[in-house]
Every structure is written in structure tokens, then in C-alpha cells.
Write a protein that binds this DNA or RNA. Structure first.
Lengths: 220, 220
DNA sequence: ACCTGAACACCGTTCAAGT
DNA sequence: ACCTGAACACCGTTCAAGT
């Protein structure tokens, strides 16, 4: 449970898991996932890269801990908001997860690239399954619905954060696209272009989440 | 439309976009995304890494082209399978996309990490929106449903391929997990453990997709 | 016990120079 | 026109040695 520094013996350590994690999330927000290297993190902590490996076995281990920390308080915040029935509670949980991922630059990419199984992630999962079981859903439906909601939320937020970063520069898509659209190659995309290019991601997320909830209601 | 080698002048080129793309997908299947480097791809093509940059501006450009190629034939294969009503056709399209991503190791990760807007991806999108519009859905609902289905499919398949690769080794999760479960910390996860640890991803995908389709039916 | 120094085995990308 | 050679500016990770 604690390899480094259990008693306070010797010099006070300049590093520890909590402070390093905090700085890593800072760096993520400032520069994004691609710029988050062990060397740069070490620099920010006033230490050499090798020293980090006393606290994190690998970079993957660090990223997993970051993902877990991002989910801090998600189950709880949704519990406050969700005073209504199962559908309102599940909606609150999914929205809280999206908000947590959006709170950090590339948050969804970090989450999707790891397999965090700490108290925050498990607490969130237990809350989702709990809401559905107590509403009378079958155990297997409740469990599968958890995955559906989580996978949709991660998939959506991955896309959302990618779109945010892509729009910080070029004019969306190459001219080839708009050309093909006006040429009539994709009539249905042309017809729905305003919605397809909308940046109201909250509305888009709520639409998809609404479909899932309605689908669940029909199955209950 | 063709910077390198439009006329066949000079020595026959050892490289071209199509053959390089093919080899890149081969390498992806053999060794996975982490092992797919420009240097290794160049080696496989009998060339030095720098030469690849005459055909792909960046590695990201290569990955985008790979994602686009993975979606080859997806809209078409679903059109054959989908002879029924809108719900069957949309289901066929989503299943075909999952199958296409599963066909290559780390396929979902490649797709999620890019923003392919070639004929295959646009054709798929147009087909999805078309099915819904012709079924009488509002334009904005049809467009949003496309994103929901695509984001869910990518999110699910990302998780599925990550789980496949994780199970090629250690016994799923650390003992800490099973300990916390039996300790009663997560009663709902404990109660649904069989479904949560199931590896029947096709069933899980169909469940989520079914929820989306039922949600759409309710909105029509 | 905690961290440095230095190395190992790599990366993506660029570009003058060769053929 | 197409590719090589060589470099630039990095990576994650390991580990003997210092303090």
C-alpha cells in the first residue's frame, strides 16, 4: 500500500504521488497530452525523469492515476443533482462524467487510454448500476446499461474535445468536402449541414443520452 | 490531386500511397499501433524513413488515410444486409462499422485518433442520415442520431479492443478489486459481476445499439 | 531512502545531396 | 523525380552511484 516513504525518515522527499499527480494534471491542462512527457513533468517537479519511476512504475501507470483522479467526486455530485427518478439520476451521472472529462484538456483521451479501477471509477459504476437495479431493472440490463452509458460518454467527449482542438486553427474541413457536398454526392449530409457543423455539444450529448434513457424506459 | 508521380517518368517509384497504406495496415495487425513507427514502416517498404514524407505529410496523415481505408465498403455492406425498415438498416450500418474497426488490431484507436473525411467515412455518414430522413425523422434528429451511433460505436469498440488486449496476460484486475467487492463496498457491482466480466461484446454492443434504436423509435 | 548522471534504444521530421 | 544520409530535437526506461 506504500512502497516509498511510509515513515518520515531521512530527507523530506521532493516527490510524492499526490503532488506529482497534481502537477501532471496542471501540465495536461496547459499543454495537452502530447506535451505531457516524463521529462517535462520531472522538470516541473524540479527533479530528473528517472526519479518519477520511484512513484509510478510506468507512464501508463501515471496516466491511469490521472484518469482515476479526474473522476473524483463524479458519483457524489450526481447524487446531489439526482433527486428525481432513475432516469434523472442516470442522466445526472452521465452528465457529471462528461463534465469531469471536459474539465481537463484531452481528458477523454487520457480516460480512454487507461483502465482505471480506483474508488472513483468503481464508485461511479456502482452508482449507475445501483440506480437501475433499484428502479427494477434486471441485473444484466443494469450492468450492460452502465457500459452503454460510459462508452457513449467517452466516445462523445473524445469527439467533442477533438473538435474543440481542431477548430482552434483551420476552417474546419478542406474545400474538397464542401465541394463534394454541393456536387450532390452526399445529399443527406448536405441537407443536414447546419446540425452536422453545430458546436452545441451539450445539446448533442443530451440528445444521445436521451435516446439511451428512452430505450431503457421501453425495456423496463 | 497527385503531387508525386503523375506521369510515369524516371525510375519506377518504390513507394506509393496505396502500397504503403496496405503495408501500414499489415504492420498494424501484426504488431499493434504502438509498434507502428515511420521507421519500421519504411523498413518494411525497403526504404528510409524520410522517404515516406513524400507521400504522407505527417504520421497523423498516414493514420487518417488508414482510418479512411478501414471504412472501405462499410456503407455498402450494410446496404446489402439492411433490407428491412429504418431500424434494421441503421442497426446494420452500426454493426458494419464495429466489424470494420474490429478487423484491424487497434482499429478503434486509429479511428478515434483521426478525423477522416474521405469517401468511405462520408458515405457511411450519408447512409446513416439518409436512412433516418427517409424514415421521416426530422433533419436535426437524423444528424444528431448519426453522431450518437458513431460515438457509441467507437466508444464501445475502443473498450472492446482494450479489453481483448488486456486479457492476453494478467488475470483481468488486481486482487484489490475482488477484495473491495466482497467487502461490500460496491454492492451493485458485486451483484452484477457475471455480466460485468462477460466477454460477449457482440451482445453488449447489440444491447446498447438496441437502446439507441428504441429511443429513436419513441422520438419518431 | 531518495535522487542524479548517464546511458540504452528508440522516436517524428527535415533537408542537402546524390542518382 | 525519388530516395539516402545524416542530423535535430526529442522520447520512456533503467540503474549504478552518490548523498
Amino acid at each position: 500500500m506504500s512502497s516509498p516513504s511510509t515513515p518520515t525518515r531521512g530527507r523530506p522527499a521532493r516527490l510524492d504521488r499526490t503532488r506529482t499527480l497534481h502537477k501532471a494534471l496542471d501540465l495536461l491542462n496547459q499543454s495537452g497530452l502530447d506535451a505531457l512527457t516524463m521529462r517535462r513533468l520531472a522538470d516541473a517537479m524540479g527533479v530528473r525523469a528517472g526519479a518519477l519511476y520511484r512513484y509510478f512504475a510506468t507512464k501508463q501507470d501515471l496516466l491511469t492515476a490521472m484518469a482515476e483522479r479526474m473522476m473524483d467526486g463524479v458519483a457524489e455530485s450526481a447524487a446531489e443533482a439526482g433527486e428525481g427518478d432513475w432516469s434523472e439520476q442516470l442522466t445526472a451521472l452521465a452528465r457529471a462524467m462528461r463534465t469531469a472529462l471536459l474539465a481537463h484538456r484531452d481528458g477523454a483521451r487520457v480516460y480512454a487510454g487507461t483502465h482505471a479501477t480506483g474508488a472513483n471509477v468503481l464508485g461511479f459504476a456502482d452508482a449507475c448500476v445501483g440506480v437501475l437495479r433499484e428502479a427494477g431493472f434486471r441485473d444484466d440490463d443494469a450492468a450492460r446499461a452502465l457500459f452503454t452509458v460510459a462508452n457513449f460518454t467517452v466516445g462523445h467527449t473524445l469527439e467533442e474535445q477533438a473538435a474543440l482542438r481542431a477548430s482552434d486553427g483551420e476552417p474546419a474541413d478542406p474545400e474538397v468536402l464542401r465541394e463534394a457536398l454541393t456536387a450532390g454526392t452526399y445529399p443527406h449530409l448536405s441537407a443536414t449541414l447546419p446540425t452536422l457543423t453545430s458546436t452545441d455539444f451539450t445539446r448533442l450529448f443530451d440528445f444521445g443520452l436521451g435516446l439511451l434513457v428512452e430505450g431503457l424506459r421501453a425495456r423496463r
